[in-house]
């Protein structure tokens, strides 16, 4: 079975004991896990041993068990739950708005040459202007409340999605479009059956980039003018010298990013199975 999985044309030696095969497969898996996570595990172990043994300053790098304890306490006490909820709400709202506007707008702009050409200079200009630099402007316009925070995240996440979608539409193989036309497909049909599916992989590149950006801007916005949220908790804990609590919030932010990326990758796998086949 193990060999067949690799190449069905290779004859399988039948005299391999099943127990040995299972052992070998287990060893292969363990080896792969070690290669992938070995360095991370080593880093964490060094941190823990260094902090408890006093080789690194435990007030700046508290031992991992202290961080985990702070995390569990924050979660069970409900204090961190509120922060997670508000952070998720801000970034989720902004990301959803960027998707809802960026993808349709990108599909439209990529299709119509004149529109794309007219808007491209503005787009490039806005893209090069850091969203954080514009945050004070948004605060002036929208106040220091939720609206300006959500808007600055939205602004920063919009461009990766928009540009990736435009790029995807523009790069659709003209030959495929011509092929569809020879079967009598009109503009709308060509869009639905050729342009849209062909752009999906590129759109996902934009989505993943945007998700990362959303988190980055979330933290920045919460550090600048907020009294809730994970970004605020990082700053606040540091200010009050609650270093384990600070790392607990940082850890949560990292997990949030990992989760968002994993969800997008899973969705991409489902929608782009055809593209996966080649890249493996």
């Amino acid at each position: 079975m193990t060999y067949q999985g690799l190449d069905s044309s290779v004859p399988v030696p039948v005299n391999v004991a099943p127990g040995a095969a299972i052992l070998r497969r287990g060893a292969v898996r363990a080896g792969a896990a070690l290669r992938r996570y070995g360095l991370l595990a080593g880093f964490l172990a060094a941190w823990q041993i260094g902090a408890t043994g006093g080789w690194i300053n435990p007030t700046v790098f508290p031992p991992l068990d202290a961080i985990l304890a702070a995390l569990l306490q924050g979660l069970s006490g409900g204090a961190l739950i509120d922060d997670i909820a508000i952070s998720l709400q801000r970034s989720g709202l902004a990301f959803a708005a960027a998707v809802a506007i960026g993808i349709p707008l990108g599909l439209f702009m990529g299709q119509i040459r004149a529109v794309e050409q007219a808007l491209d200079p503005i787009l490039q200009f806005f893209r090069q202007t850091s969203a954080l630099a514009l945050y004070p402007v948004f605060i002036l316009l929208l106040g220091l409340g939720e609206a300006s925070k959500v808007f600055v995240i939205f602004w920063a996440t919009l461009f990766p999605i928009l540009l990736a979608t435009i790029g995807g539409v523009k790069e659709v193989d003209r030959k495929l479009i011509e092929m569809a036309a020879t079967f009598g497909a009109g503009r709308a049909t060509i869009f639905r059956r050729v342009v849209l599916p062909a752009s999906v992989p590129s759109i996902f590149v934009g989505l993943r980039l945007s998700a990362t950006t959303a988190l980055l801007l979330l933290i920045a916005a919460e550090m600048i003018g907020a009294n809730k949220g994970l970004g605020f908790q990082v700053m606040n804990a540091q200010y009050n010298f609650q270093i384990p609590q600070m790392f607990a919030a940082i850890l949560l932010l990292a997990l949030l990013g990992l989760t968002a990326n994993a969800a997008l990758v899973a969705l991409q796998r489902r929608l782009c199975r055809w593209a996966e086949l080649s890249s493996r």
Partner: peptide, 28 residues
């Protein structure tokens, strides 16, 4: 009444063989 076959197959990579062959009819 006319169909053209190009030098390259011009298949849609996201459709299976069945989906590709049925494409002309579903488009219509």
């Amino acid at each position: 009444e006319r169909a053209i076959i190009f030098q390259e197959p011009r298949l849609l990579p996201w459709l299976t063989v069945l989906g590709n062959v049925a494409f002309g009819l579903t488009v219509r």
